[in-house]
């Protein structure tokens, strides 16, 4: 990994203020993402009302909640692909969201400020796995082609896909697509990473390896990670903080250290989640 870290881009270097903000040397703990009283949804259909939380540098921040409660949608808001109905999202180095969305590259100069892995992987179907990874490198770095090629092979090796460099996404399995997408999200060595259910569909061994990878990146390189996952083991192992989204009350019902929440939370919904109880038991407990 360490030989990969000097990936910097030409455009980044031209903009010293951006550089200072996004470098990994900043002290751990300063806020990277601030969500203030954000309401999200579509028209009358509200998913979350006035959600407020911060993600600090060096966090592994997990978004939790039942299926369909809006975790993927929240990620879309964080990366600026959707605009909140009310409130604001702020990312260090990008400033507070104005009327334009900074998720749209045309409102931004320089390379993308974060890496994203979508729930579906979203690999480009018309390119091979290798080309998927080299695309951002060709655009945002001035590395010669052979350096890019070895970088791509290195990244693919990291997720165990070295032999599949020349396969098209339609020729690899669902779990492999996820891994390739993670490698692509890491391509530009971002220091903020968004992952939507990275380990869903992976076998237990790959899932554990992925957890270890995230931990290494987080500890060694100070990578801040925001991820959605349902794997309790992985949550307790890697998460430093979490936010628990609830669909019915359209709000975040708990946040903090997941281990602490498991042991101390009095909210039956949170307890049910961490102790794998069916919903009916949680409802009885509440009644």
């Amino acid at each position: 990994m360490s030989d990969l870290s000097p990936v910097t881009s030409g455009e980044d270097a031209q903009d010293p203020s951006d550089e200072a903000d996004s470098s990994g040397d900043a002290p751990v703990g300063e806020p990277v993402i601030r969500v203030k009283a954000m309401t999200m949804g579509w028209g009358d259909f509200i998913l979350q009302r006035e959600a407020t939380f911060t993600v600090n540098r060096g966090d592994v921040f997990v978004l939790l909640g039942g299926s369909g409660c809006g975790k993927s949608t929240l990620l879309q808001h964080l990366i600026g692909l959707q605009t909140p109905l009310a409130g604001s999202v702020e990312i260090a180095g990008l400033g507070e969201r104005g009327p334009e969305r900074w998720g749209e590259p045309r409102f931004r100069v320089g390379p993308p400020p974060f890496g994203v892995m979508f729930q579906s992987g979203a690999l480009f179907g018309s390119m091979t796995v290798g080309q998927n990874l080299s695309l951002p490198l060709e655009r945002w770095t001035d590395l010669p082609p052979d350096a890019i090629a070895s970088l791509v092979r290195g990244r693919l090796g990291l997720v165990g896909l070295r032999e599949f460099e020349h396969h098209y996404p339609s020729e690899i399995s669902g779990g492999m697509k996820k891994r390739a997408a993670i490698a692509r999200a890491l391509a530009l060595e971002p220091d903020l990473l968004f992952l939507d259910e990275p380990s869903a569909g992976l076998d237990p061994v790959s899932a554990v390896e992925l957890d270890d990878l995230i931990l290494t990146l987080n500890r060694q390189f100070g990578l801040t990670v925001v991820l959605v996952t349902h794997e309790l083991e992985s949550i307790f192992k890697i998460a430093t903080r979490c936010a628990f989204l609830d669909k019915d009350s359209q709000s975040i019902i708990a946040r903090g250290d997941p281990r602490q929440l498991r042991d101390e939370s009095t909210d039956p919904r949170v307890r049910a989640f961490f102790n794998r109880l069916p919903r009916s038991v949680a409802e009885e407990a509440r009644a």
């Binding site: 879309q76 990366i79 692909l81 998720g103 749209e104 590259p105 931004r108 320089g110 390379p111 993308p112 974060f114 890496g115 994203v116 979508f118 729930q119 579906s120 979203a122 690999l123 480009f124 179907g125 695309l135 951002p136 655009r139 945002w140 692509r184 391509a187 530009l188």
Partner: peptide
């Protein structure tokens, strides 16, 4: 979601 992915890669 490939268009979204493209945007997050800065295109």
């Amino acid at each position: 979601e490939e268009i979204d992915a493209l945007k997050t890669l800065g295109f």
